[in-house]
Design a protein around this nucleic acid. Sequence first.
DNA 1: TTCCTTGCAAACGTTTTGCATCGGT
DNA 2: ACCGATGCAAAACGTTTGCAAGGAA
Lengths: 139, 139
Amino acid sequence: MSNNDTLKDAGLKVTHPRSEILDILQANPEMHLSADEIHNKLVDNKQSIGLATVYRVLTQLEIAGLIQKNQFSDNQSSYEIKKQHHDHLICTKCGKIIEFMNDDLEKLQEKISDKYQFRLDSHVMTLFGVCKNGSCQNE
Amino acid sequence: MSNNDTLKDAGLKVTHPRSEILDILQANPEMHLSADEIHNKLVDNKQSIGLATVYRVLTQLEIAGLIQKNQFSDNQSSYEIKKQHHDHLICTKCGKIIEFMNDDLEKLQEKISDKYQFRLDSHVMTLFGVCKNGSCQNE
DNA sequence: TTCCTTGCAAACGTTTTGCATCGGT
DNA sequence: ACCGATGCAAAACGTTTGCAAGGAA
């Protein structure tokens, strides 16, 4: 399915900015891009799209459930194309972000929520550390 | 030990703003206050301390390991006096924040970090949900 | 043609900084 | 008296909004 069909299915009119931005996130499924970085990529691609539009579109895509917004520890949000649920492991030295999924973790969260009489809706789980065994790109 | 001694031990000169701000956080160990809320409390207490100073002091206290900075999902950080390690459960309806500690969770995080060859330094784990059984203050 | 969408610039709220003054030690 | 700490105002930062012009259906 093309990104344009994806947009239509989400009830969003197919416009140039929406299509371009979704393309970028789709083409970089492993990346966690800030609004500014996305805007820069658009500029690189000779697209004249305003930063305000990038923010507006990202918000719409997030509401439509097509992308996921992450607020890691910096003061800038990052966006990624929506995949299966996962959490993040971040190397504080080289910035590498690893996505992982752990069923035991999900179950444990439910158990904890039950204990405190909460109905769990979502969670944020981010592990901060440093790559071991020389795999760090900033050693 | 008085807060002034705590400041001295941390290598920080004992000043009026530092003492006052530490007092507020100490007096409200269960609260998660923003810089602005702390500033308001100071004003309420007839203390004339600038907001910029509140930010500066909070940063210093955090570096000294006396307080903990939290960045939940809003665009405002909150601070709490440093206690034993814990994670948070937040009601998205009434804003209630519950602190919890779960050993299985800590162990699981280590296990996951090992799997991806990371040396785990810290983590953020926040569960978002809604209070059940009529305990929600905003039902 | 109809609205929704966009670009631009200006506003916004939080946080940081420059600088002259103040205050602990 | 020293040098760090503070208050104030202004800047910086990421993000949002108002508005007139543009574009998809």
